[in-house]
Amino acid sequence: MSLTVVIPAARFSAAQGVDPTLDLDLPGLRALLGRADLAETAGSSPEALLRGWFGAEAVGAAQLGLRLDWPDAPPGFWLRADPVHLRADRDAVLLLGHGGLGIDPSEAEALTGALNRLFGADGLHFYAPHPDRWYLRLDQDPGLTTTAPVEVLGSDIHPHLPRGEAALRWHALINEMQMLLYTHSVNDARELAGKPAVNSLWLWGEGPAPADLRRPFARVCGDDATLAALAVAADVPQRPLPPTLDGEVSGSDTLLWLDALSGPGRLGDLMAWREALQALDHVWLQTLLAAWKSGAIPHLRLVFPDSGGNLTAELKPATRWKFWRGAAPVRRLALA
């Protein structure tokens, strides 16, 4: 019986000697790092780690997302066309919002309806089966290379716009989309309500549909959309994250995805990141430590993915007898 726990955005830079965990009370994390066998491997994003486990490295994000959001989608070439919030900043335009914009289904329907009225004659068809995840259907491959929004969040969009032979045409189309969205009554109402405007679409996720994926776990548990989509595509049972550890989560060969640090980490919100780490330790890590010590979870593996290096902490049954291993400083998570 084993449990794999992935905690994205837990690693931090050690540059200039700054420790963002300073003065935090993290007994669960410190004990787990101290008792475990630690291994460093080549870095990866959390999504790349997931895709590697499922054998889905080449699968398009749009086709993968449709398995979760719209399994009966009509055939065609699909891109994600996610609603985003941009903000001009001197000579740059920053991507400051992707997901979590509080878009309700009626707003998504109104905005995609307006987009379809403007672009439908050009063969562009927009759909919003999920308020945060929109899709663009085309009759043929536009020959574009795109960038996932998670890699751009907080940065200037211009170096990351779609690339390819038809890139200039698509840049012009994106500008038209932005003008339509900027003047739409939905955004007028959102701004009056103090909500961020949905003032652009982020086109990305080209690639083939998933086929013959691996089943690396008996079940998965977490709220990440990519995790849920991969589980659906690979026919792996999946469930949302519960309030804390229960018997089903700690069952045999389960993947548990604890993603509370990713949001504040992407936005560089240090205070929110510290608060989320403190809560993660109290709600999950101390409970996981106790379950491993009692033998309820004989084999516990913690994975901390980061593009600068993945850290794995392995706690096996025999490790419980290595009582001389004490708590370790949290700076073991620091990237060199």
Rank of each mutant, 00 (worst) to 15 (best):
Gln140Leu: 08
Leu115Arg: 00
Gly65Tyr: 04
His130Lys: 12
Pro71Trp: 11
Leu50Asn: 09
Ser106Val: 15
Gly55Gln: 10
Ala88His: 11
Val84Glu: 11
Arg117Thr: 13
Leu49Asp: 09
Ser106Tyr: 12
Ala56Ser: 11
Leu124Arg: 09
Gly143Leu: 05
Pro142Trp: 02
Leu95Pro: 08
Arg87Asp: 06
Asp72Ile: 05
Leu68Ile: 03
Gly65Ser: 14
Leu124Asp: 10
Leu118Trp: 05
Leu124Cys: 09
Pro71Phe: 10
Ala73Val: 06
Thr145Met: 11
Asp139Ala: 13
Gly97Leu: 08
Ser106Asp: 15
Gly76Met: 07
Thr112Gln: 06
His125Gly: 02
Gly102Ser: 08
Ala108His: 07
Asp91His: 07
Leu86Pro: 04
Val93Thr: 15
Arg137Glu: 12
Arg51Tyr: 05
Pro131Trp: 06
Leu101Val: 10
Gly143Gln: 07
Asp72Leu: 14
Gly100Arg: 08
Gly102Met: 08
Leu64Tyr: 00
Thr112Gly: 02
Leu79Thr: 00
Arg67Cys: 15
Gly113Trp: 11
Leu49Asn: 01
Asn116Met: 05
Ala58Glu: 15
Gly99Pro: 09
Thr112Leu: 04
Trp78Thr: 08
Gly55Phe: 07
Glu109Trp: 01
Ala108Lys: 01
Trp70Thr: 04
Gly120His: 09
Asp141Gln: 07
Ala48Tyr: 00
Gly99His: 07
Ala48Ser: 10
Asp104Tyr: 05
Gly102Phe: 07
Tyr135Pro: 03
Gly97Pro: 08
Asp69Thr: 02
Leu68Asp: 04
Glu57Gly: 05
Trp70Arg: 10
Glu107Thr: 06
Trp78Tyr: 10
Gly99Leu: 12
Asp141Gly: 00
Asp141Val: 01
Leu111Gly: 03
Ala114Val: 05
Val59Ile: 08
Glu109Arg: 09
Asp91Cys: 01
Gly65Glu: 13
His98Tyr: 12
Ala61Tyr: 07
Leu64Ile: 06
Arg51His: 10
Ala114Thr: 12
Leu79Glu: 07
Phe77Arg: 09
His125Gln: 14
Asp132His: 05
Leu86Tyr: 01
Asp69Leu: 04
Asn116Asp: 13
Leu136Lys: 02
Pro74Ala: 14
Arg90Ala: 15
Glu109Phe: 01
Phe77Cys: 12
Leu64Gly: 00
Leu50Gln: 09
Trp70Cys: 12
Asn116His: 06
Leu96Ile: 13
Phe126Val: 12
